[in-house]
Design a protein around this nucleic acid. Structure first.
Lengths: 109, 109
DNA sequence: TATTTCTTCTACAATGCAGAAGATATTACG
DNA sequence: CGTAATATCTTCTGCATTGTAGAAGAAATA
């Protein structure tokens, strides 16, 4: 059915982090992954708002984790990308790739 | 001074098109470049709004072209990326690269 | 005046952002 | 034990920035 709505810059980054973290993707960890890997700042609010919106669009799903906590704290909420999200992600990545490929700013990246 | 505000997805795409088109970058052509190269839709309104915002931020500059028109029509307005815009562009591209590099969605792109 | 080419305008929708507040678990200590 | 301190994580709220569409307007030639 090909809706072709585009993902925002931060949405792309969040989904990339989700994929990287596989089954260890919960809020705090996702934020950490983004900041350490890319240096890009990501406030808690921004992150959760984005995750929530992605979930509304059906691009990610979530489930609350077991109370495994080694030391205090609230239960984690784990996220994972859905098939639909994967499709959208791929399309956005492809678009960027087509536009950036070959540029000096790109190769140097 | 490192402001580090992030570029939006479409802003990145527009800047990429600007760089590609070099001195032939005016509205209609930019739009064409984006759509033919990546398949991504870009309405006139969206494009000019984005160019205008980028100019306000000092990321692009513009000048009106000579009335060269081979056959009717209004004067073109040529855009080019500024040093500051280039810096911001590079940073955004780098962030994406760091997040995407190594992912299957990326290699496949 | 008709036609062509290109840009502006207007109004609204979607995304991004920050940090205080809230929830819920373990640990400390009487 | 009871309950306060502490640690972890997520929600909430309000606002700023970016994205979108297409009709309307400007300016040139035929």
């Amino acid at each position: 059915m090909r809706k072709s709505k585009h993902l925002g810059e931060f949405e792309i980054i969040v989904l990339a982090a989700l994929i990287r973290l596989a089954d260890d993707a919960y809020g705090v960890k996702i934020r950490e992954e983004i900041e350490t890997r890319s240096g890009r700042k990501a406030s808690v609010g921004a992150l959760y708002a984005t995750l929530s919106r992605l979930e509304n669009k059906g691009y990610v799903s979530s489930h609350t984790g077991e109370a495994t906590a080694e030391r205090g704290g609230r239960a984690k909420r784990y996220y994972q990308i859905t098939a639909s999200g994967e499709e959208s992600f791929q399309q956005s990545v492809r678009t960027l790739s087509l536009m950036l490929n070959g540029l000096p700013e790109w190769s140097t990246a």
